[in-house]
Design a protein around this nucleic acid. Structure first.
Lengths: 227, 227
DNA sequence: TATTTTTAACTAGCATACAAGTTAGAAAAA
DNA sequence: TTTTTCTAACTTGTATGCTAGTTAAAAATA
């Protein structure tokens, strides 16, 4: 497990949640593996309590399955849960990009534009940085629409989806993702909800094609009930 | 605080979460009041630990604001968070009722129909029972579409909305709510997504009108940043 | 009396200890 | 050898005590 230093502003519980989340999403902790509270607590230099609380939160999104008195199972890649996460993101964010056409102020547009400039700069240079900018772009849409609580809920479920996305980093064309973002931005700037909706749905559709490839290529991580 | 008996199948943590949730939604615990872990633990006959964990989960939806070393503030009625909850429910469930038109099997339709029959039976007889049946009706839609994880996420946020709904029980016309449900059901049965969408949006629109009435009538519970 | 300082009683975060249930392997019995 | 029983080492759930920080009222000072 990769253990980054603790940020001084976060509590031990938040630190534990952040580190475990990152390690699960990056597949550093493998799907289907068992992790114990004590084991993680020792690795992070904490007691069981904050780790236990982080585990509880992770279990709410079913990314971690707590088996009382047995242990904690890092969930296998589950197509049903990925479908739910995709459904939630697409449904919510499609509605948001339409609303953003009305709500986006000049400063919001500038922030989106700055983010896109960075995406274009890091394109084919730093995949991790690009992924972070991608997440930031989507988060900005929520902020423009004053829907940060929805962002938290969607993010929690998206962990299933994010884990697959990191698997597919090499097969997805970063170039197209960034140009998709540009198209969404242009539609918001032009205050054209129909175009924004269309551009967003085209964007999200790209992650559909990957699933078939991934499910064949990484089947050791795919849960049984996935087809 | 109303303390129902502990269900033998639930853990102390789940029990604490259920009891506190019910008391907050029913306004038995007033918006803006402070509650302590020890106080609730004593009332429920538990130690602080499971109550602490229940508080953490409640704080995730911002229905409870944990102020470290100070106490826990039961959130005031917040129009922004209600708007988010409404937005999430309307957006997600509008998409679901469309999908349900394809996905609903004969048995699903029968379950919806049974639920509706009970709603019609309890109409103007038992408001609490009707509310429970309403919740069950919406939950069935999620189950038909295999989106129970989304249901959990939406439910958590809906607490803000549910708290207002209980305030508005007398002003909302139960008769219309039940006939709305019937219209949604008919559309799903006829496999008509456009009609289902329209019926659902008409249904949810009813809760818009109430807000203005409630915000004037119960202003002692409304947070400052609400307009 | 008015203002500052102190103190004692709170709070939640966290560490630790124990309780209760599971599991795998050793030991005993067939 | 094979099967069964037992035991010891695990697991998470929960209780308890301690820590650090906040608050409000009492006490000291002006």
């Amino acid at each position: 497990m990769i253990v980054p230093p603790k940020n001084s502003s976060e509590t031990n519980r938040e630190y534990a949640f952040r580190v475990i989340s990152e390690n699960i999403i990056s597949l550093e902790i493998e799907p289907g593996s068992m992790i114990g509270e004590q084991e993680i607590a020792t690795a992070l230099g904490l007691s069981r309590t904050p780790v236990h609380e982080a585990f509880l939160e992770l279990s709410k999104s079913k990314i971690l399955d707590i088996l009382p008195q047995k242990g904690c199972l890092v969930s296998m890649i589950d197509s049903d849960l990925i479908r739910e996460a995709r459904f939630l993101r697409i449904t919510v964010e499609t509605a948001l990009v339409e609303d953003a056409c009305e709500l986006a102020k000049e400063e919001d547009l500038r922030e989106l534009d700055d983010n896109l400039a960075l995406q274009e700069f890091y394109l084919s240079k730093d995949a991790d940085k690009l992924l972070a900018l991608d997440n930031e772009f989507h988060k900005l849409i929520y902020r423009i629409c004053n829907k940060m609580q929805c962002y938290y809920m969607v993010s929690l479920m998206s962990m299933h989806f994010d884990r697959v996305r990191s698997l597919s980093l090499h097969s997805v064309k970063d170039l197209k993702i960034v140009s998709d973002h540009r198209a969404i931005f242009d539609a918001i700037k032009k205050k054209d909800p129909a175009a924004a909706r269309a551009a967003f749905q085209k964007h999200m559709a790209r992650f559909d094609l990957d699933w078939n490839i991934i499910s064949r290529e990484y089947k050791q991580y795919i849960s049984d009930n996935s087809k």
